[in-house]
Amino acid sequence: MNDLSNRAISIKADLLTKRYGDFIAADALSFEVYKGEIFGFLGANGAGKTTAMRMLCGLSLPSSGSATIAGFDIYRETEKIKKNIGYMSQKFSLYEDLTVLENIRFYGGIYGLSDGAIKEKSEAIIARLGLQSEADKLVSALPLGWKQKLAFSVAILHQPHIVFLDEPTGGVDPVTRRQFWDLIYEAAEEGVTVFVTTHYMDEAEYCNRISIMVDGRIEALDTPHNLKQQFQADSMDDVFYKLARQAKRVDL
């Protein structure tokens, strides 16, 4: 994956900033993410990861700076961006009072998939996740791990260029986390750019490149291998610890 820089650029952020009054949640973020890359976004709680991600998804307008997502401008073309991205928020946000199939059908419909495509996708997702016997159960009845896998599958239902995952594996058991990352790899293999935030350092190792945010700024950005060398650390844990303890901001 050393030839990443030759690939097309999926996300390009330039001095992207979000201010809330005096508080700078995200401070002059500049980075590029390449097509098909798994880009890890690390940082302590309150470092500004979610703020950054919400700006990139078009959920929140930046205070200054510029960015293009899948080639579309973050200010003027938010609706075009939304056609081309998938998003999975920190908080599980499929409809708990709809069944698995109904959720898939609903989001398929919203993204403008044809009835045939929705049917095909539904079957594929159910088969891939092994949810055959749960397909007609309410989502609220599923265990968290399955919910997260379902939410991810729904987020990439419409074959977006980029998928944003905000702490997708929080609170999920290690086995399910592994399975979740298999799903991420499969998506990346198909050319989907994956932008993922996480607190798990083993997951950070799975990423092609990672950036580490401290107090709203990106303090480090490279492959896990290079970062370990740069910070003379044995593991990503050490790298993270060395950077994160400089943080002055308290947990939000």
């Binding site: 078009g58 928020s89 946000s93 919203i110 403008g112």
Partner: peptide, 13 residues
Amino acid sequence: EVGTIEQINVTPI
């Protein structure tokens, strides 16, 4: 409150 609107707001609806 539940957060489902977030998922709606990232769609081109």
